[in-house]
């Protein structure tokens, strides 16, 4: 036999993740991310301050910030943010639940996929804003129609993400479940859902992004409060600072909620052996 000669045993410890980065590097990383927006903001502030622009249509950051503090002092800001957050939260919740359930079902049962998926894909092809008039007719002009619209926006990426991820689960892993005779629900719970979790988190984040997009659409149509209302109000009364204030708050809230998903999911994804991990994200 050729294989008789003892060969060096393969190292039993695969390389650990690279040595922890030094403290400076660790703190410098998030700073790197705000460098670009900060430079742009300061630059514009300077341009207006020097007088190269009157800043009427594009108000400088100081004026936007003053607008935000003014709104905050009057209590308006909290009211608008709460209204918008509440709509996004409800719409996101409904969209995620429906998308996950239907996505899991049509990912797992091919019969369900043949029945369901063509319809869902056809509905997905409809620009979601086309639903607005119908939703207003059906559900009224108040909260229900807005939440329904957001839920529709969230539903499709989640549905598609879950179904696609389930279809892409490694057959070899599924076979392990089969050899242990897992029932359908147990197979979904113990093999398929954990296996799709990384992709699921991504689709949740995409879904949330669409949720934020649709809340603006919903609030532009008819609302008396909410950040979208602030946008519309700013346009109608010619207050660009207020529009920019609302946009900045949208950016902050969107980034914050996205980050929340990321942080909440991180403990469940520690097992991953992926490219992104090794680089310390």
């Amino acid at each position: 036999m050729i294989s008789d000669a003892p060969v060096l045993q393969q190292s039993s410890e695969p390389a650990e993740t690279a040595a922890a980065p030094s403290r400076i590097v660790r703190y410098a990383r998030p700073v790197l991310g705000v460098l670009l927006p900060l430079t742009l903001a300061l630059g514009w502030e300077l341009v207006v301050w020097v007088g190269w622009s009157n800043g009427r249509l594009v108000p400088p950051p100081s004026r936007v910030f003053a607008n935000i503090t003014e709104l905050a002092r009057s209590g308006e800001l909290v009211r608008h943010i709460t209204a918008t957050l509440w709509r996004v939260a409800l719409g996101f919740a409904f969209g995620v639940v429906a998308g996950t359930l239907l996505g899991a079902i049509s990912g797992y049962w091919s019969l369900a996929r043949r029945l369901l998926d063509p319809t869902v894909q056809a509905l997905r092809a409809i620009p979601s804003l086309a639903w607005v008039p119908l939703f207003i007719l059906w559900l009224g002009i108040f909260e229900t129609s807005k939440i329904a619209l957001i839920a529709v926006g969230v539903f499709f990426p989640v549905y598609l993400g879950v179904m696609g991820a389930i279809l892409a689960v490694d057959r070899k892993i599924v076979e392990v479940g089969r050899t242990f005779r897992l029932s359908g629900p147990a197979m979904i719970r113990r093999i398929l859902l954990p296996a799709v979790l990384p992709a699921y988190v991504v689709s949740l984040r995409v879904g949330l992004g669409l949720g934020w997009m649709f809340v603006v659409a919903a609030e532009l149509i008819g609302a008396s409060e909410g950040l979208g209302y602030l946008l519309l109000d700013g346009q109608q009364l010619g207050k660009p600072a207020q529009i920019l204030a609302a946009i900045v708050i949208f950016a902050i809230l969107g980034k914050l909620t996205d980050w929340l998903i990321e942080v909440a999911a991180a403990p469940f994804l520690r097992w991953q052996d992926a490219f992104g991990r090794a680089k310390g994200a």
């Binding site: 070899k172 076979e175 050899t179 242990f180 005779r181 097992w271």
Partner: peptide, 20 residues
């Protein structure tokens, strides 16, 4: 005709579940 409790199998690859 289908996987049985009294029969176990080990594959060429370990096929461990990476999340456990």
């Amino acid at each position: 005709a289908s996987p049985h409790a009294k029969i176990g199998i080990i594959f060429q690859e370990p096929r461990l579940l990476p999340w456990l």
